[in-house]
């Protein structure tokens, strides 16, 4: 009902502009002008970023061993003495042989920086690779271009080729018209909600 209604009612850009203004305003209210973190919050964050010296992999915040308790006391003392978070972390690390091992987020320098950089670089590379690979994403594809013709040729050739491998049916039954064959068995009332192309038939057309 409202599905078809919204199809006829054209939605312009202005409701979205209004929404954007509201969202940005709300985010600004919720983000700007925050109080600086209290000593308690800083302590808790530090406890989460330092491993309990006697545990395998637990953070100080998650451990009730005496060793974790001792680090908590230490953090508290240094915070009250006015040290910065980084100074406290360095101080705790300096008290141990191999103490950098206690910091749960590797430093952003040296070899440890890789753990931060590699995923970011890989993600950018993956997206860039996709963009290159599907480089002919263009609205112009609506009118037939050379690229389209090539595409069709490639499809046809592939079809011929694929039918050698898989004798039953074309390789692309779905490209032609996806839902023709599929719902034919199901009752008409349950016109396959699974693959019903969302509201396409409801609103899109």
């Amino acid at each position: 009902m409202s599905g078809s209604g919204s199809a006829t009612r054209r939605v312009g850009w202005w409701p979205w502009a209004l929404m954007a203004v509201v969202v940005v305003a709300l985010l600004a209210v919720g983000t700007l002008g925050g109080k600086p973190p209290t000593l308690d919050e800083r302590a808790h964050n530090l406890e989460k970023s330092i491993r309990c010296p006697s545990c395998a992999s637990q953070a100080v915040a998650n451990s009730d061993t005496p060793a974790a308790e001792a680090v908590r006391v230490l953090i508290r003392e240094r915070l009250e003495a006015g040290d910065s978070d980084e100074e406290i972390r360095d101080y705790v690390a300096s008290r141990y042989p191999d103490g950098r091992q206690l910091l749960l987020d590797p430093a952003g320098r040296g070899f440890g920086a890789l753990v931060w950089a590699v995923p970011v670089v890989a993600a950018i590379a993956a997206v860039a690779g996709l963009v290159v690979r599907f480089g002919d994403w263009r609205p112009a594809a609506v009118t037939a271009t050379d690229a389209d013709r090539e595409l069709v040729a490639a499809h046809l050739a592939a079809r011929a080729d694929q039918s050698v491998i898989g004798p039953t049916g074309g390789p692309e039954p779905s490209v032609a018209e996806p839902s023709v064959a599929e719902p034919s068995v199901a009752e008409p009332s349950a016109a396959d909600p699974v693959d019903g192309p969302d509201g396409n038939d409801q609103e899109g057309a």
């Binding site: 010296p53 006697s54 545990c55 061993t65 005496p66 060793a67 308790e69 680090v71 008290r95």
Partner: peptide, 10 residues
């Protein structure tokens, strides 16, 4: 707990 911490007692 500081002593245990210094010695690394688990």
């Amino acid at each position: 707990g500081r002593t245990a911490l210094d010695w690394g007692v688990a």
